[in-house]
Amino acid sequence: MMHGLIFTAIQSFFATTHGRRRWQAVTSAAGVGMSDYEAMLTYDDDQLGVLLTAICDDLRLPRQEVLEDLGTYLVSHPQMESLRRLLRFGGETYLDFLHSLDDLPDRARLAVSDLDLPPLELREVDDGLFSLTCRPGLPGFASVMVGVLRAMADDYGALAILEYRDRQPGGEVISIALVESAFSRGRDFDLGARVL
């Protein structure tokens, strides 16, 4: 079974960007038998594939592009502020954040104990040049991560070039070139903003 958070992320992204009516049309075309997913329930693994196919058909975009947009949405849309904040706890700078990615699945599990994200491994290939390997387990996760990492670079005010490189037996690989850590001011992160 797959965690409902994955489905609500897709639903929130599509319905916010393209409207609720179009979302209902997509779920109906996918034949998943529902149009509202619950974050705290689980769903059949197979639903993810059919849902993504229906979305790509509707938008007439390749899957990788749709998933990258989803990743960007998850970090940059005001509605997703809480997720952006949780990611910003990863580190003070974008570089710290990149190094925290190895812990991301554990951090996710700490928050939601049954949320299983594939392991991530960051390797520094050269000065300012990294490769991130996303182990298999969640189809399309690497593409979503490209969008997430791109949006997080903006968030930190870093200038980075991200690219989905290839799929290897051990997982999918993203290359990250960190050109400048403090390129722009970035967005504020106030540790205590959510504190009661």
Binding site: M40, S82, F89, R107, L110, A111, V112, R194, V195
Partner: peptide, 16 residues
């Protein structure tokens, strides 16, 4: 920092 993260993460999950 981990504690603050945990508080926010758990609050978000609890809210859901």
């Amino acid at each position: 920092i981990e504690m603050l993260y945990l508080i926010e993460a758990k609050s978000a999950a609890m809210e859901a």
